[in-house]
Nucleic acid binder design. Sequence first.
DNA 1: CCTTTTTGTATCGCGTGCGATATAATCGTA
DNA 2: TACGATTATATCGCACGCGATACAAAAAGG
Lengths: 145, 145
Amino acid sequence: MTKPMPTTDDLLCFALYSTSHAMMRLYRPLLAPLGLTYPQYLVLVALWDRDGRSVGDLGEQVALESNTLTPLLKRMETAGLINRRRGAQDERVVTVHLTDAGSALKDKAAEVTACVFQATGLSLEEVADLRARVEALRHKIEAAG
Amino acid sequence: MTKPMPTTDDLLCFALYSTSHAMMRLYRPLLAPLGLTYPQYLVLVALWDRDGRSVGDLGEQVALESNTLTPLLKRMETAGLINRRRGAQDERVVTVHLTDAGSALKDKAAEVTACVFQATGLSLEEVADLRARVEALRHKIEAAG
DNA sequence: CCTTTTTGTATCGCGTGCGATATAATCGTA
DNA sequence: TACGATTATATCGCACGCGATACAAAAAGG
């Protein structure tokens, strides 16, 4: 007897897909007052960690290629959150720098993170463990690709 | 002394976001020969489980509202995978039915699932456990929303 | 029986993720 | 020194996820 066809509830990919979207829906009303979209927020988190880095380097951290990142950064530049500068040494390289406005959002974002953490209903240990496992999965998938 | 600002590697939301995208990138070349996009595949999985259901009911299972689902179903109808019918009893309700072509993809999709499972490098138990925890998180987030 | 409320789906506009491709700059090699 | 290969970013077109809103049909209430 063959195993029955899995439905969406059996698929890890669906759990990741739907939970990631649920997380975005949770963040969105908290970020909107800061004038931020969810992907912009993630990019800022990376820049608060390390400012003045190349598009490629930033793309590595946020796992996005330049075809997604460049338009996103342009919108953030238009919003006054960052500046982009083309390298003098290597004119292919564009570096991304936080503006004062971009830096100033760091503290507000900390409040957002706290709100979201509370909404998960998980302990710090549970969050850390689940996060590590999900990330480990991504590394395996990327290695397989 | 305050705890340092978390970076992307510390955020569960980023792990979900980036791993979900990595999963999509893994599926895409496997689904493309079947003429399917990733969200279309997830919808088919739900329909293979239960055919002939309303847009709203289907939306509940795939966690998508009608503003996303209706355009997606229209594209699938254009591709000959499904048919949509408006109810005679209740003219507000639209039901979605698999076509022969849509049903026929079920077996091919099983092969895709097997490929993807192998790429994760996880055991069946690990997949099931991780899936359950991620799904539980989604339920908590949705309850908080 | 009529009006208001609720429900189900659809449309609009925007942000964004990605395959494919283009452009320009740098590097490596003969 | 010149040319081909490689690298970094940018553009294009499309799919899709969602807030906001519209429209039509059914249900509820007076």
